[in-house]
Nucleic acid binder design. Structure first.
Length: 198
DNA sequence: CATGGGATTGACT
DNA sequence: GTCAATCCCATGC
């Protein structure tokens, strides 16, 4: 079982505070294979990236501001922000309170609610529905209003349904950033067709 | 108060 | 391959 998994009455388990209150690189790797659920739609995480206040690519690098205060909040908080004026990007806040760190969820393999996703995304194939950080928030209907919400409520993450080979998780440099681009802090499932492409 | 940049995407040459 | 769209907010004057 994954660290921090707690059993819910009625079946299923949800990742709890202990899961997120660890070094952000561990959480980024650990989230691969986990399930994101929101209002009946769900998908398996196939790609993540880690961000930490100690390096300039992270929004929290500048310290606590109105924009970044959520990154320093309780582990297991959602941090959603608008990128390029258009897209909402979903992160899970990690490490203890007062440390600015989060895992960006970059791609999902759709599991449930695919028709609703296609309605929101324009009838694309399953492989294109959630294969990017801006795409998956649109597909699930996740907006900026969820920033600051505690993960585990309407928006929740579950541990993997089935065990999988940890060798399938590979690392690489993060995508799309201009600062500290070389840290290999991106994690994804090898050969999974739902991973983002450029 | 004005400016500039951005953890992206999709359309177009 | 290039490039515009479009919003939030940090920064600087």
């Amino acid at each position: 079982m994954s660290a921090g998994a707690a059993t819910l009455a009625g079946g299923g388990a949800v990742l709890g505070r202990d899961f997120y209150a660890r070094p952000v690189l561990e959480v980024a790797r650990g989230l691969i294979g986990c399930i994101v659920e929101y209002e009946g739609a769900s998908g398996k995480i196939v790609e993540t990236e880690a961000y930490h206040e100690s390096e300039p690519a992270c929004h929290a690098f500048v310290g606590v501001t109105k924009r970044t205060q959520t990154l320093f909040a309780e582990p297991g908080t959602a941090y959603v922000y608008r990128s390029y004026g258009i897209h909402a990007l979903l992160n899970a806040v990690c490490e203890p309170v007062g440390v600015g760190a989060a895992v960006l969820i970059r791609a999902l393999e759709p599991l449930a609610g695919i028709e609703a996703m296609q309605t929101r995304r324009g009838g694309l194939s399953a492989e294109q529905l959630c294969s990017g950080p801006g795409k998956l928030t649109q597909a699930l209907g996740i907006g900026l209003n969820l920033s600051g919400a505690k993960l585990g409520g309407t928006l929740r993450l579950r541990p993997p349904r089935n065990p999988y080979n940890p060798d399938l998780v590979v690392t690489g440099p993060r995508v799309g950033i201009t600062k500290a681009p070389h840290n290999p802090w991106r994690f994804y499932l090898r050969d999974n067709p739902h991973v983002s492409r450029r």
